[in-house]
Structure formats: structure tokens, C-alpha cells
Design a binder for these strands. Structure first.
Lengths: 229, 229
DNA sequence: TCAAAAGTGTTTATAATACACCCATGG
DNA sequence: CCATGGGTGTATTATAAACACTTTTGA
């Protein structure tokens, strides 16, 4: 036996996913009602144990997929929670990931199987363990990310109007934005293609649809946006 | 046995510390040369196993203290690394933490016991496992933090000159800064007290010493500095 | 014809950057 | 008396914020 590798120190490792969704109205988070112990009947984040031969990223993807049926979703590791008694059954550390998905695109059936439900951020109930802390951290991170890089298009349909995009930003940042300033800012980023089609559902006049130019977007993603002084 | 808690999935969990130091000259990182297996003789970050009854934060503090003798150090959790074969001996996940300390203040003796050495960032050798990745991530995070909040005073003596502070920022950001703009910016933050003493070692004229007003600093720390749009 | 949402530019304020000279002192 | 690092302020530019009216068309 190698020095330091003491089998008594082996512990469980879980992954919990904060799944954000958006539906033209509200920023929501997907929670499941547990039909298993511990804390059966209570609400929690969707999670699972890390397998012996699996990375955390893979586990997060697996867990998200199991609940939503979705693939190729933007996910990001958030933080690892390690309070000794956070899980009352066995010592378990949990790494949280957050994802942002389009609420329309998930698999309804799977969600029902898991007793899952979308909650507006203002209506989130008490969650098990430290899941409320995880959610708080995820919201903060999402806001920061949104302010500094053009994340969030995952939350919109492929073609969208400027007002939808603005609404999304306003919802994430929890703050009203000026219509003209917003458009100027987005245009200056030069990541959208203006289509000739209009969406006629929201007004009599109709509003132009935009699409998202992936190549340019990816450029922006890799650059650093802050780093001033 | 509770569903999901499969003892086969239990694994080791380690903590690795990226310890930054500064000595008027250079930003450095403290590495140890391993006199134990695996990878004996190679350089690595200082690390250790998480104990069964201990949080990650506590483990990070314990590990830092063991190597430097220091306490009450600013540390921050960075990221959790989980490649399946990152540790060739046993499946081990590692959470990295970074600390910034004053190079003068550590315990020389302890450092010698661990075959530890300070390396300039440009001279860091190949490290074991994924420790170079950890270091890269830490450097990025440190730069970002430095740009947006007045971190880094931990790296200076209690009383310091403006030029020392500027040098520190220049070193961390790897970028030259304008003397006057720097002073204006720092003054606008209103977190320093100008002392009547001068430091006479660096020039014939001498330069005023400053001290750091903790209360105001803490205020700034908790505010969010970015979040634009 | 009017209600409801879309679209569009300019002005002002704030923040970041660029820039050059005099000062004090020990050797 | 001069070499060395210390100290200081203003003008310019870039970015962010504030702000109001006209257009379209289905009901």
C-alpha cells in the first residue's frame, strides 16, 4: 500500500445539476420531487453518484440527459460542496454543475417520470441538503457570465426577436434594460444575423427575426472580456 | 443499504494547493519535490488526502499550514479535477485551492523539510499528474480577481510603498501600468491610509508608506464589481 | 381609428488612457 | 552637482447611460 492511500478515507462523490430554463416569461429551474430515501417527498436538484470510471463532466452530462433527454448542452462546473454532514446517510461530497436549456426542447415524459417541475426562481421551495446554496451560487455565476459574454442563446429558439433576447437578459440579470442601448450593444458585438422573416405573433407590425452566428460567437467566448486596469 | 450508495463507487479525494508568493520582484509559486511514491523525485503542488471527517476548506488550510506554518491565509476553491486516470495508483479526484502569501513570512524550516522551492511562473517545470493544468487555471483566476477587486495585499508587507503595490499588480497581470493612472485608480478605491513614514531604502528622496484599511477593503470585497450591461 | 409593440440616433456623463515635468537627497 | 526614483494633474478618447417620437397593421 502506498503512503497516504488509506482506504478508510474513501468516500462517495455525487454530482448535482442546476438546470436553468427560459420560456419567454421567466427564468426557471428544474427540480425533482424525490420518491426515494433519504428525504423522500422533498424537492431537490437532479443528481447522482459519480461512477468509479467516469469524469465529473461525464457524470453531469449523464444526469442531465437522464432527466431531460437532451444532449450537447452547455454545462459548467460550479463548485464542490463538502460539509461533513451534508448528506445524512453517508459522507458524500458533491460537485455542482449548471446547465441552461430551452424549456420547450426537453422530453416531457422523462420529466414526469422523475416528478420534476419547473420553478420560477422566486418560488423555489426549501431543498434537501445544501441544494439551496448550490442554486444561489449558480444564479450568481449565471448573472456574471451573462454580463460578460454572450451566453444564453441556448435558452432561445433558433430564430428569435430582439425583444425576446432582451427579455432573456432582463430576466437573467433581474433588471430592466433600455431597448435602444440594448440593441446597440448587441449589434456592436456582431454575432447576430438579421433575417428577412418576421415574427407576427407578438404584434401587428411584426418584428424581425435574428439568428445567431456561431463562428463569431465562439471567437468571443474564448477571448477574455474583462481583465481591465 | 440505501439505493445508489454503492460502496464500489467510493473513491479517494485529494486537495492540491497552488501557493502564490511575491517578493518585490516576481510572482512565484511554491512547489515540492516528492520524496515519496508515486512520481518520487518529480515536482508537484503541495497536496494531501481529504480525511473522512473534514471539509475541503479545512483540508486546504491544513495542507497549507503544514508546508508554510502560516494561518489565516486567503484561500479560494478553484476547480475539481476528475480525469479517471489522473492518479495512476488509485482513482482519486482532486479539488484545487489557491492561496496568496507573503514570501517573507513562511517558515523556512518547514519548506526545507518538504524539499519545497519557489518557482517563477516562467520557470515552472513539468509537474506530476494534472498539476500544470491546475496551475494554469489558478493563474487565470488570480489575474481576473486582481483586475476586479483589490485582492493581493496579502502579498505585501504591512506597510508598503505605492511602487511596491504597482509592481505587484504589474507582476500579477504581466503588464506595465502607468504610474499616475495607477495611483489615481487606487486612490479612487479609497482603501489605503497614507502614513507619515517614508521608506528610504529605494531612493534618496524616500517614498511614503501606505497601509491598508481593512474595514473599507472588506466592503469592496463583498460588493460586486462587475455586472455591467 | 386606435391600441400595441417595433424600430430608430443623438446627447450627456462617466471611466479609461495617454502623456511630461519638477522634487528631494545621498553619493 | 547630478543620477535616481518619487511625486503630481490635465487633456483626450472610449464606453455607458439617458432619453422620445414615428411606424405598422389587425381588430
Amino acid at each position: 500500500m502506498m503512503v497516504g492511500y488509506n482506504p478508510d478515507d474513501k468516500i462517495f462523490h455525487a454530482v448535482d445539476c442546476i438546470i436553468f430554463g427560459f420560456n419567454d416569461e421567466d427564468l426557471k429551474v428544474l427540480l425533482i420531487q424525490r420518491d426515494f430515501e433519504p428525504e423522500k417527498g422533498k424537492w431537490s436538484l437532479m443528481g447522482g453518484f459519480l461512477k468509479k470510471v467516469e469524469t465529473l463532466d461525464d457524470a453531469a452530462i449523464r444526469i442531465l440527459n437522464r432527466l431531460t433527454g437532451m444532449q450537447n448542452i452547455y454545462m459548467e462546473q460550479l463548485y464542490t460542496f463538502s460539509e461533513v454532514n451534508r448528506d445524512p446517510v453517508e459522507r458524500t461530497i458533491s460537485t455542482s454543475y449548471y446547465a441552461i436549456i430551452n424549456i420547450e426542447k426537453h422530453n416531457e415524459e422523462l420529466i414526469e417520470n422523475y416528478n420534476a417541475k419547473w420553478f420560477s426562481l422566486s418560488e423555489v421551495p426549501n431543498l434537501i441538503f445544501d441544494h439551496n446554496d448550490m442554486l444561489d451560487k449558480a444564479i450568481k455565476r449565471l448573472r456574471r457570465r451573462t454580463s460578460i459574454s454572450p451566453i444564453g442563446f441556448e435558452l432561445l429558439p433558433e430564430k428569435f426577436t430582439m425583444r425576446q433576447l432582451q427579455k432573456l437578459y432582463e430576466t437573467i440579470l433581474d433588471k430592466e434594460l433600455d431597448k435602444r442601448n440594448f440593441i446597440n450593444k448587441i449589434n456592436s458585438m456582431d454575432i447576430l444575423i438579421k433575417l428577412k422573416e418576421k415574427d407576427m405573433t407578438s404584434s401587428t407590425k411584426g418584428s424581425f427575426l435574428f439568428q445567431f452566428e456561431k463562428a463569431k460567437y465562439d471567437e468571443k467566448q474564448t477571448n477574455s472580456f474583462y481583465l481591465k486596469l
